[in-house]
Design a protein around this nucleic acid. Sequence first.
DNA 1: GTCTATATGGCGATAGAC
DNA 2: GTCTATCGCCATATAGAC
Lengths: 204, 204
Amino acid sequence: MSKIKKDNTEERILDAAQSVFIQKGMDGTRMQEIADTAGINKALLHYYFRTKQKLFEAIFKKIFSGAFPSIKDFLLSDTPIEEKLEVFIERYIDLLLKNPFLPIFILKEINRDPDFMIMTLKSGGVNPSEILDIFEEEMHKGNLRKMEVREILINTIGLCIFPFAAKPLLLNLFFENDKNAYKQFLVNRKTTVKDFVLNSILIK
Amino acid sequence: MSKIKKDNTEERILDAAQSVFIQKGMDGTRMQEIADTAGINKALLHYYFRTKQKLFEAIFKKIFSGAFPSIKDFLLSDTPIEEKLEVFIERYIDLLLKNPFLPIFILKEINRDPDFMIMTLKSGGVNPSEILDIFEEEMHKGNLRKMEVREILINTIGLCIFPFAAKPLLLNLFFENDKNAYKQFLVNRKTTVKDFVLNSILIK
DNA sequence: GTCTATATGGCGATAGAC
DNA sequence: GTCTATCGCCATATAGAC
């Protein structure tokens, strides 16, 4: 089946809204800007989605249904913990390289309207407990040093996310605004974060 | 000299504005809310600071003049690298425990208006190069494993900041909304982040 | 300096023609 | 379904009395 370019209005609106919302957040977004980006007028936005809030919720759900392809099967498979972490970090950073505004967007909205965000995330299947169980088991087997398992996951995610969320600052303070160097730094983190985490949690 | 409670209007405004701006950010803040918090009316805000933007800039500068007490003397002193990192992390997390909204505030504003933020930070003396030099030297002496020095500092800061910036999410997903447990987790990070980082960068 | 009242502009949302 | 025109509100900002 050939890929048809869907240019129906609803989809154009969703694409435009996603692009603006993810960069400016709920508070910073203007309906006019979404309309301009979609090449239509404001009234149509309301015709399709009634309110800004409803449009935002549609976008947030859309982002999360697509953003987190399941990695559970792999994590639960019978591979060494090093490899699991490696693949997790690689996929996570790849996802962020494709969606660099995702971290700051989520952090902003999580702090602005926690209840809605958490509800949406949970109904999207976000649940760390299975991953924590894996760490727990490996620790029991003596493959990981004794520590709070939540710490491992929280630190790993934090290390992946931070350079994206703080990009404008780090780009300036650490890379003299050399965007290519910064991009390379981000790509390299697929390896360096893995090394950093493994060096810290594996028993030598 | 006894501490006099200064209750002049300008200071009340600054305190109120700081409290609101840091929680809601520039976009999410209403002048009315600042006025209410300060116990005055909107007009006075404009009498003292003319515009919301100017008030915001005053607050941002105020936060940064007080927020980062110099730790340079200590970092440049003749103490082992382990101790330097330990004290750096301890002070950093203590600062965040006292100003838990600081991370998300800075991340938001850094992404909203990078030029102004970076200018302000730099004129406030923020400059990582001296710290990077220390890592460079220790690495040369063979005390740290070979790696990109920027990585050490960026990771350390990221690990300190992330649990504050993502608090509502982590509180729910990892701590079942037990605020005391989360608070304890944050306090413990003065030790656990240090261990995590040192385990990763020290040569065994 | 501090207040009330009001101007001014922008934004979300709606009405109504086509 | 899509547009233009406009409403109504809210937020920043100002005018002017005290």
